[in-house]
Every structure is written in C-alpha cells, then in structure tokens.
C-alpha cells in the first residue's frame, strides 16, 4: 500500500511551488495589496502547502490558487460589518452622528453627498456640518450638494473653528428633530500633528456614533499607512473606498483586513449621488482572480 501511495501521491516541496508563488506575488502587488501584506499572505500559503501530500494527477497550480482563494476569503471576512449601517441608524437614538475623515482629495465631501442621498432614500432626514473651514471653496462645494439634495447645511467661516461648526449642526439637529448629522472635515495628511489635534477636538466635541475613514482605491502602499495612522490617532468604525470606477484593483481591502481587521462598508463607483454601493468581500476576490 505504501508503495502505491508513493506512486500516486507526492509531497509538496518548496521548489514545486515557488514559480507559482512568484506569479501570485506579482498579481497581488499589481493589485496594490501592500508589499508587507503580500509577503505575509504568501508566507502563510507556503507554510500551509509545503509538506502536504497531493495526488500526482492533481494540477498543482489549480490547487495553490484554490488554497489562496480560500484563505483570502477567510481574511476578507474581517471586511464585513456585523450589521447594515442604515438599519443601525434607524434603530439608534437620534440624532445619529457620523464624522468622515481622511487625507486630501480622497472623496470625503462627495461621499457625504452620496450618503445624504442614501439616507434620504431610506426615509431619514439629514443635516450636514461643513466643518472644512480651510480648503478653498470647501463650503461652497457642500452648499451646492446640500441645495441639490435639499438638506440643511451648517456652514462655517473660513479660518474658523471646525469643531464649533459640528457642534452647531448637532444642536440644530436636536432642536429640529433631525435623524442624522454628517460631519465633513478638511483633508489632512497623516504627517500633520496640528491637524490631527484638530480632528481629535472635533471628535471630542461631536461625540460621533460612527467614524468613517475615507480611502482612495487608487492609492498604493500608503493607503495602509493612512489607515494605521488614523486608527492610532482617532480610531474609526469602518472604511469607505472611493474611485473604484477608476479600474483600480483595490488591494487595500485585503491589507486592511489582514493588518487592521477593519470593515469596508461602501464603495464609491462614480461622481453621481447613486454611485455608492455596499461592499461585499467577494467583490475583491472576483476582481483579483478575474
């Protein structure tokens, strides 16, 4: 029997799989999965495979891909959120306060506009706090959205205190019985100590029920740096990934799940209000293995 086994099965050695692993490495890296996460995932894969017995007729490449897909799928489960945010809001005491933050130009303001659209469609009423009092026309940009979407907006003065804009919006929501307060904040680099302090202050004063980090799907290795930085600085409940329509593979999704175990709740897939879709982990897998 042993002899038969030897003929029919063989043990996987490092050499047998190294070419395929290198191929997979290229694919992960080209999908903007961060280098360190790519290395770790492939190391895990190797450890799992080496020493296993496979039937000689089995296609090793298929086996490895299947195995990777399975483990990626497990990792990606961390991207899932336990409950739907909109349902959550409906069940929670009002006003429900959400703050959005992230580095410059990722799509925070546009995502807020999309959120207003989504919440309104779900029968919730919304007020926006334009707490970006820094960037040129940040106020006007939100004002255009608020007008189009027919929701109230609390504006700030340029150079003014963003935390007090957030505070005013919350007070207004309370007195008017508004369900949700969406706080837009200025873009800030993960190197800027002062602006980090400012964000902390906004959060201290607004006491948000939910914090959203907005990340750009076009970003490479730095996206994970950003995610780590904001986690350490203020923490967040979920990530929204934007500009997915720009054909980026969105490897950050995997890096986030592996390193930070953070859920991704929505994807921005265009510049229109309806271009916001719920995130599903299989989305990333399909893209990666397409």
């Amino acid at each position: 029997l042993n002899i038969f086994n030897k003929l029919r099965y063989k043990e996987i050695k490092e050499n047998d799989i190294s070419d395929i692993i290198e191929e997979l490495r290229m694919e992960l890296l080209e999908s903007d999965v961060s280098l360190e996460v790519t290395d770790k995932i492939l190391e895990d894969l190797k450890t799992n495979l080496i020493g296993n017995k496979v039937s000689r007729s089995e296609d090793l490449e298929q086996l490895i891909k299947k195995s990777l897909k399975k483990s990626l799928n497990e990792i990606l489960q961390y991207n899932k959120i336990d409950s739907n945010l909109v349902d959550n809001i409906k069940k929670s005491p009002k006003p429900f306060i959400i703050v959005f933050f992230g580095v410059n130009g990722v799509g925070k303001t546009t995502t807020i506009a999309k959120f207003v659209y989504l919440l309104k469609k779900n029968g919730l009423n919304v007020i926006i706090a334009a707490a970006d009092t820094f960037r040129a026309a940040a106020q006007e940009q939100l004002a255009v959205h608020a007008k189009k979407l027919e929701v109230p907006l609390v504006k700030g003065k340029y150079g003014g205190d963003p935390a007090s804009v957030a505070y005013d919006a919350i007070q207004s929501a309370k007195s008017r019985g508004i369900d949700v307060v969406l706080i837009d904040t200025a873009g800030r680099m993960n190197t800027d100590k002062d602006l980090t302090e400012e964000l902390k202050r906004i959060i201290r004063i607004a006491k948000p029920n939910f914090r959203i980090l907005v990340l750009d799907s076009l970003a490479g290795n730095d996206a994970l740096e950003q995610a780590r930085y904001f986690e350490d600085a203020v923490g967040y409940d979920a990530v929204i990934l934007t500009k997915v329509d720009a054909d980026a593979k969105g490897g950050i999704v995997l890096s986030l799940a592996y390193e930070l175990k953070k859920p991704v709740i929505y994807l921005g897939i265009g510049q229109d209000y309806e271009n916001l879709i719920s995130f599903d982990p299989s989305w990333f897998l399909d893209r990666l293995f397409s």
């Binding site: 890296l29 080209e30 999908s31 903007d32 580095v103 130009g105 750009d216 076009l218 970003a219 490479g220 290795n221 730095d222 996206a223 950003q226 720009a246 054909d247 980026a248 593979k249 490897g251």
Partner: peptide, 12 residues
C-alpha cells in the same frame, strides 16, 4: 499626480 497613487499610475 498624487504621491500616493499605486500601480494604476502607469496605465492612467
């Protein structure tokens, strides 16, 4: 070009 852009930069 944004300094943070990843692998898509070439094609874009």
């Amino acid at each position: 070009i944004d300094a943070s852009i990843g692998q898509k930069a070439f094609d874009l």
